[in-house]
Amino acid sequence: MANRAYNFNAGPAALPLDVLQKVQGQFVEFENSGMSLMEMSHRGAIYEKVHFETESLLRELLSIPEGYKVLFLQGGASTQFAMIPMNLLRPGATASFVATGSWATKAIQEAKLFGETAIAASSESDSYKRIPSIGELNYAPDSAYLHITSNETIEGTQWSEFPDTGNVPLIGDMSSDILCRPIDVSKFAVIYAGAQKNLGPSGVTIVIIREELVAKPSTTVPTMLRYDTHAKNDSLYNTPPTFAIYMMGEVLKWIKSNGGAAGMEAINREKAALLYDTIDGSNGFYKGFAELGSRSLMNVTFTMQSKELEAQFIKESEAQGFVGLKGHRSVGGLRASIYNAVPLESVRALADFMRDFQNRNAQ
Rank of each mutant, 00 (worst) to 15 (best):
L113I: 04
L113S: 02
S176H: 15
A121Y: 03
S150C: 12
L199Q: 11
V214W: 13
S41H: 10
H51V: 05
S317L: 10
E250P: 04
Q358F: 07
Y286C: 10
S36D: 06
V300W: 15
Q158C: 04
S306A: 09
F243T: 10
G11P: 07
E66F: 13
M304P: 08
A118Y: 01
A272Q: 05
T239F: 08
F72M: 12
N283Y: 12
Q26D: 06
F27G: 03
A140S: 15
L236R: 14
S63V: 07
Y192L: 12
N299L: 00
M304G: 09
E316K: 04
A262W: 03
D173G: 02
E48G: 02
S127M: 07
V98Q: 02
S33K: 01
E161D: 06
N238H: 09
T149S: 09
P222D: 13
N87H: 04
S160K: 15
R226S: 07
S96C: 06
E250Q: 15
S41I: 00
G332I: 10
H328W: 08
V168T: 05
A140E: 13
T94A: 01
K106N: 06
I183S: 08
K112R: 13
K106V: 04
M174L: 09
E136V: 01
S143K: 00
L15M: 09
M86E: 14
F8P: 03
F52T: 14
T303P: 03
V207W: 12
S257V: 01
E53F: 11
Q109V: 00
A140G: 08
G324F: 12
V214E: 05
P182E: 11
R210S: 06
Q24W: 01
M83A: 04
I255H: 04
L17M: 06
G249N: 11
A120Q: 02
E124F: 06
L20F: 00
F97V: 00
F322S: 00
V214A: 08
Q21M: 05
G135M: 04
G288W: 12
F114I: 03
A336T: 05
L73E: 01
V323S: 04
D142F: 01
M354E: 06
A10Q: 06
K232G: 04
L170D: 02
G200E: 14
A120R: 02
I209T: 14
G101C: 07
A120W: 04
M224F: 14
R226N: 11
T239D: 10
